[in-house]
Structure formats: structure tokens, C-alpha cells
């Protein structure tokens, strides 16, 4: 299997290639089992070592890994009876934002998330996971639908950002995002947000206001992409690595700042190495939180959410 290794994974890639090579040695006289095992252990050890001290930039690369599970991959693993619902009822259906109803462990929930494409054709169709105003408005429509039927809302965040295009501006990209922020702050249903890949700025936040905000271990969440930050502050997009480090966009760093509630551990080498295990971890975390939030009255739920939002910020006073 081609795992599409990243630069910093080269030592692992080399070992894996060796193992693959050995397996193809067709001489039955040679007992290669032991050697393969030895190399596999070495590869595992190597992976553990590399992954125990990733830089912020390396985490960003993992978050954008071409084989990383996307929203619909998790939908497939997590929910039964899922029906995707389309359109903002005003202008269009935005394939960069998906939504629908499904059952999580028997319980009906509303699911909303950005969706990236896997191959070139789908990437273009999904606009690389960059939603337009109609995407955010579809999301809002579904949030209100969930509110009416008291379904918990689960959002999956995975976007480089909201789409910066001419049409998006004409149709009020900023208004669409802003509207979601104010509406989500007052929704009377439990909201659980999970950053599964890239949490890109306002485009991510527009479905990111919740009672519980969690991140997968190698996902990122930032106010601007490292490239964007580098080109503005360093006047050089090639300084993205430095910018990533300065901003601190990985889950662990954000947990320390108190901006998220929990980091969900990924399988060794990242979610794409074992999507089933990742989905199982995510599923049990979601069920735990829905159960917990179910215990709160609507007033208490909204009051806590709003006091959490009011508490964001570091200043002297």
C-alpha cells in the first residue's frame, strides 16, 4: 500500500520499502519471516519516535495529508441511516459543505461538515473544501432544522478556509459567516464540534461554535494559514514553517491555551494509517459528550456556551 509518506517520514518509508521488497522475494528456501518482523518492529519504533516530537509545520502537513479521512469517510463509519440533505433554499447546493441526518448509536443527530475531494475531479467539484456563502447558509438551515426537532448537532471541520472568490463576495461571504456565529451562539441544542483536518480561519469557525470543541491529534486550527501568515508578516510565503511555529496551530498547543476541550489520539502514524480505529475513537468520544450534554437543561446549555465565548481572550485589566 502506498502510504504517501511525507518528507519527515522518509526513514519510515525506507523501512517499509525494505519490508515490501523482502515480501516479494519469492524464494521459499529463505526464511524471511524473522527479518520482516524485525524490520516491522524497527519501523514501528521509528514511527513512534518521529511522531513523538513533531513540529507545528509537520502537524500541518499531516492535517492536509492527501489520504486523511474526510467528513464523509467518518459519516460512513459513524452513522447509520444517514441521509444527506442539500441546498440553502435560496441560491444553490454547495458541495464543499455537506449536511444530513443520521443515527449515532441509535440516536438521531444532525451532521454538518466541510468536504474535500479525493481525486482531481472531486477536488474541483468540492472546491477543495472551501465553502461559499450558500454552503454556510445550508449549514445554518440545517442547524435550525435540528433545533426544531431537538437533534444534537455534530460538526466536522476540515477546510483551508472560506472561499475567497468574486461570486462568494457578491453573495455576502462575510455576512454568511457572521450570521452563523451569532446563530450558533444561541442554538438550543447541544453542539459538538470536531476538527478532523484543517481548521482554516473564519471558514472553520462558521461551523465551529459549540458546547464541546475537540480536535484530532494531528489536526490544525488557526486564524490564518501558515502560508498566508508568512506572506503578510514575513512578506515571504516560504516562511510558512516559522509562521506555523509562531502561531501554534496544533491540537496540543491549543489545548494548553484553553481554546479546545480535548485532543483525540490518532492511530500511530496518523488517522489515514487506520481510519477504522480513528472512527471508533471519535465515535465513543461523541457518544460520551452527547450523553453528558443531554443532562443539561437548554437554558444551562446555552448559558454555559455563552459564558465560554465571553471568556475568550488574554488581556490585562
Amino acid at each position: 500500500m502506498d502510504l504517501n509518506f511525507l518528507d519527515f517520514e522518509r526513514p519510515i518509508a525506507e523501512l517499509e520499502a525494505k519490508i515490501e521488497e523482502l515480501r516479494h522475494v519469492a524464494d521459499p528456501a529463505l526464511d524471511i519471516g524473522e527479518e520482516v518482523e524485525r524490520l516491522q518492529a524497527k519501523s514501528r519504533h521509528q514511527t513512534e519516535q518521529i511522531f513523538s516530537s513533531l513540529t507545528q509545520w509537520q502537524v500541518a502537513q499531516l492535517a492536509r495529508h492527501p489520504q486523511r479521512p474526510y467528513t464523509l469517510d467518518y459519516v460512513q463509519h459513524l452513522f447509520t441511516g444517514f441521509e444527506e440533505l442539500h441546498g440553502d433554499r435560496a441560491y444553490a447546493d454547495d458541495p464543499a459543505m455537506i449536511g444530513g441526518i443520521g443515527r449515532l448509536d441509535g440516536r438521531a443527530v444532525m451532521v454538518i461538515g466541510q468536504q474535500k475531494g479525493r481525486d482531481t475531479k472531486e477536488k474541483i467539484q468540492r472546491n477543495f473544501g472551501m465553502a461559499s456563502p450558500e454552503g454556510y447558509r445550508k449549514a445554518l438551515r440545517l442547524m435550525h432544522l435540528a433545533e426544531r426537532f431537538h437533534l444534537p448537532l455534530l460538526t466536522f471541520i476540515d477546510t483551508p478556509g472560506a472561499y475567497p472568490g468574486v461570486g462568494a463576495e457578491e453573495r455576502g461571504q462575510s455576512e454568511a459567516i457572521a450570521r452563523n456565529l451569532i446563530e450558533m451562539s444561541a442554538l438550543t441544542i447541544p453542539i459538538i464540534c470536531t476538527v478532523i483536518g484543517e481548521g482554516g480561519s473564519g471558514g472553520a469557525l462558521a461551523i465551529g461554535i459549540g458546547d464541546w470543541v475537540q480536535m484530532l491529534e494531528y489536526s490544525i486550527y488557526s486564524v490564518i494559514s501558515p502560508e498566508g501568515c508568512a506572506s503578510i508578516l514575513w512578506k515571504d510565503a516560504k516562511k510558512a514553517e516559522e509562521a506555523a511555529e509562531a502561531m501554534g496551530l496544533g491540537a496540543e498547543r491549543l489545548l494548553k491555551l484553553g481554546l479546545i476541550d480535548i485532543v483525540l489520539p490518532e492511530p500511530l502514524g496518523g488517522a489515514h494509517r487506520n481510519p477504522e480505529v480513528m472512527a471508533a475513537t471519535l465515535k465513543s468520544a461523541l457518544i460520551t459528550q452527547i450523553d453528558r450534554l443531554d443532562g443539561l437543561s437548554t437554558e444551562e446549555l446555552v448559558r454555559r456556551r455563552q459564558s465560554r465565548l465571553a471568556g475568550y481572550g488574554v488581556f490585562k485589566s
Binding site: 456565529l181 469557525l205 496551530l249 475568550y312 481572550g313
Partner: peptide, 14 residues
Amino acid sequence: EALVSLMQMAKTSA
């Protein structure tokens, strides 16, 4: 102020 600044969008809107 990195992600803390993004959260000001949520804070002011709320």
C-alpha cells in the same frame, strides 16, 4: 494572537 484572535469573532457575535 493566533487562534485567540479568531475566537474574538465568536465572542463579539455572541
